[in-house]
């Protein structure tokens, strides 16, 4: 089980790093799909089966299909590989990201993150009741207000996307679309 975590973690990291260097946006999208699927596998190893299923359905399925759809609709030219145009601001940015990584790893490996179990949902209880059932109960009791707010957010996003992407009723330049 631990071996599987390191395996999926390494594949996720390599696929994520390849987003940095691949030229074609379509290849980048496929690499991101690989990262997302590996993360879903890690979620299963961490006893979050429902989130893993939602991750594959919503992220690797719906969102990435939307990305690919837009990439193919816009017919983008390939990005130049980043290694060819390194300027001083980019080197500075890279130094900042290395600092962020060192900081994050330093904090995450300190003793502050080891609080131990504070909740009542032990591994056995989650396995017995099922993570889907527990999440469903929590969503409709303790977290019902955020749940309703998130549904309004989705409605706003749908309306916003339609307003932004629809064709104008009186196009001024008739741009072919």
């Amino acid at each position: 089980m631990e071996i599987a975590f390191y395996l999926f973690g390494a594949v996720a990291a390599v696929a994520a790093a390849s987003i940095l260097v691949l030229r074609s946006p379509v290849y980048c999208a496929m690499a991101l799909v690989g990262t997302l699927v590996c993360l879903a596998a890690i979620y299963i190893l961490l006893n979050a089966e429902f989130v893993a299923a939602v991750q594959v359905l919503v992220y690797a399925g719906a969102i990435m299909v939307l990305f690919l759809f837009v990439i193919m609709m816009l017919n983008l030219k390939s990005d130049r590989p980043f290694a060819l145009k390194f300027s001083l601001p980019k080197w500075l940015g890279l130094a900042v990201t290395v600092g962020i990584l060192a900081q994050l790893i330093g904090v995450f490996n300190s003793s502050a993150v080891r609080t131990g179990p504070i909740g009542s949902y032990s591994e056995e209880r989650v396995a017995q009741e099922g993570s889907t059932e527990i999440i469903g109960k929590l969503l409709f009791t303790e977290y019902v207000l955020p749940f309703e707010m998130i549904s309004i957010l989705l409605l706003v996003a749908v309306i916003g996307a339609v307003v932004l992407a629809k064709r104008r009723l009186k196009p001024e330049g008739e741009e072919g679309r």
Binding site: V54, V58, P117, S120, S122, I135, L138, P146, I150
Partner: peptide
Amino acid sequence: ASMQSMTGVVFVFFILVVAA
């Protein structure tokens, strides 16, 4: 998983919706 709490899992659900 480490704290044996389901709050983090519910938050991931919300983050997924916001990301979508």
